[in-house]
Design a protein around this nucleic acid. Structure first.
Lengths: 338, 338
DNA sequence: GTGCATCATTTCATCGATGAACTGATCGTC
DNA sequence: GACGATCAGTTCATCGATGAAATGATGCAC
């Protein structure tokens, strides 16, 4: 007695209502063959005893847990917050809760996620890798019920919701060229990650597009940023502005860095886009309210969230066979900063 | 054959390694009494069979799930994102995963959280209520392992990590008065929520402080904002700026609205703090990088996260008895916007 | 050599809900 | 009035891991 957790089981509820535990289960799961009077009696007993379903037991029996895992680098980057929020909304439609795991973009954490140490209590995994890439395919084995987000980084048959990083980056860059900017720089390169990472792909698109206009990009115009944080954007911009010949436009590889860049510009008493134009990538909610409002790439975050969850659901329900790949469509959102 | 989920159990692993399932359990949980040679054999079998622990079964047996639930209004508000990220970091120290539930600040969702429909698979709940308040105490019953965040809204014996909303609001307001601002307005009032909500308490602090300086607040200087979103801040500010006698300083009840307000000011071609000063509340990461950098209240988010998780852990481990209340200490962070 | 402690592993029951199969009623139909 | 169908509820086994207690083996002391 004086149990720490005074567990009430279906059997207890049944005892009180004069039925079996099984009938309680029938009532709670909406089984049709239950007399109205019995149903009421059971529900009353549930109430009186404060009964709560033990989902561990149910999961053990049914094999479904009612939750999925979303693994992202970190909530601190607006895009991932935006994405997480939307995925949670989509997941709700499938009666799923969402466990969020921050990998910190660390390789070991990403491996831990895949090896399933933490994924176990989960009907599926939506995973945005950062440190992993080609060559890590073997770590995906045994992970059915897995949807990869971001670019097509693995040469493995895995469900995948991709963003057209290269094209989107070209789109942004072309816009800057078309607007007549002459000295165009970029913030967000990261030579230490895989060539299939967003960093590399966006840089690719940036370079390719400029090259197609016969433009050469000086090395110092490509600013390395490891974390893609606000500070990276600010520091990178600061560096660009201190150059003898600063750029007149900067493509930030995500909106978060773009906000940092806008901050750095303002801190110098300069203004965007008059002194330097800024274009971002992600179209997070804050973009519209930045000072000045941020011109940016809309990567189709909502579609990504929806497709990722639906694809996972289809997989869990066995409705798909081969690996599926979906590309979200991206577009440019022109505001004031460029 | 051809099972959808080809489940490998401890018994299977044991069979392969020539031991019982129980021994496999001993190996995996680091039980000391296992011969090194056996351990190795078992681990090899684990590897070969791709064994993964079934956490549902473990949870059923042990009563612990390895995850906690964090229920917040929505990730879309910077403060909650910030909080969630920090709580996840703290939770990691206790080997907890975090399930995030967005309540949308809706009463029904908040009740659903408390009634535990979704809380079941969870060792505990950290809950920031919005729509609930005094009078809803009965819904807390049966929720041991519950830590309430935000203000002391319930007259019930519940663990609680509080923010000194009234004092913090007075602090911010006093600062504006001290700086010599004459016409001080506020954005974020919400008459539809409980008198114990952050909205009411911060308004309280605002009014009280101004009154203590003999200032009267015209009704139209208190702008209602239901969602505390970016847009609310922008729209509210816009309204203030269109008044015949606009304020010269505005206290936004959260940073997110403050960013919206800064946006509205800039959109009019005005500047902060010269035309209107803005002070926020939360000191989220973006505050430092806003244009201009936002003067705001630091509510001790980090302490809140740490205390909330530690308190929950203590409760789960039965290390505390009576309900505990902790107040985070807040302070003013002066930047440029006011 | 007996007795006792320690070690390595096993046996067995159990956590709580649910799938499958079953039992008795009740009902409608021919 | 007999028979199958439907309904309301039950019984039983089971999901996979683990706590508690048991087993057998080994070692050590006297």
């Amino acid at each position: 007695m004086a149990q720490r957790t005074d567990t009430v089981t279906m059997a207890d509820v049944g005892a009180r209502a004069g039925v079996t535990g099984r009938t309680v289960s029938n009532v709670l799961s909406g089984h049709p063959s239950v007399r109205a009077e019995t149903r009421e009696r059971v529900l009353r007993a549930v109430d009186e005893l404060g009964y709560r379903l033990n989902t561990s037991a149910r999961s053990l029996r049914t094999g479904r847990t009612g939750s999925i895992t979303l693994a992202i680098p970190e909530l601190g980057i607006d895009y991932f917050t935006d994405l997480a929020g939307r995925i949670m909304v989509e997941a709700e439609r499938h009666d799923w809760s969402v466990v969020i795991q921050q990998t910190g973009a660390r390789r070991e954490s990403e491996l831990a996620i895949l090896s399933g140490a933490s994924r176990q209590h989960s009907d599926g995994l939506i995973f945005q890798p950062h440190a992993l890439g080609p060559g890590d395919e073997r770590h995906l084995t045994g992970n059915d019920r897995l949807v990869i987000l971001g670019d097509r980084i693995f040469n493995a048959p895995v469900d995948h919701v991709a963003m057209a990083n290269v094209e989107a980056a070209r789109l942004a860059t072309r816009y800057l060229v078309d607007r007549g900017y002459q000295r165009i720089a970029a913030i967000g390169s990261n030579p230490r990650v895989a060539t299939t990472s967003a960093a590399s792909l966006r840089l690719d698109g940036f370079r390719t597009e400029l090259a197609s206009h016969g433009r050469h990009v000086p090395d110092e115009y490509v600013i390395v940023a490891e974390d893609w944080h606000l500070r990276d954007g600010a520091v990178g911009m600061e560096r660009l502005l201190s150059m003898p010949e600063p750029p007149d436009a900067v493509f930030c590889f995500n909106d978060t860095m773009a906000f940092g860049a806008l901050h750095a510009i303002a801190a110098r008493g300069l203004t965007a886009p008059d002194d330097v134009a800024i274009i971002g990538f992600d179209n997070v909610p804050m973009a519209e309210f930045a000072v000045p409002p941020l011109t940016t790439v809309e990567p189709g975050t909502n579609q990504i969230a929806k497709h990722a969850v639906d694809l996972l659901a289809a997989r869990v329900e066995g409705r798909v066979d081969g690996p599926t790949e979906i590309f979200a469509t991206c577009s440019l959102v022109v505001r004031r900063s460029a």
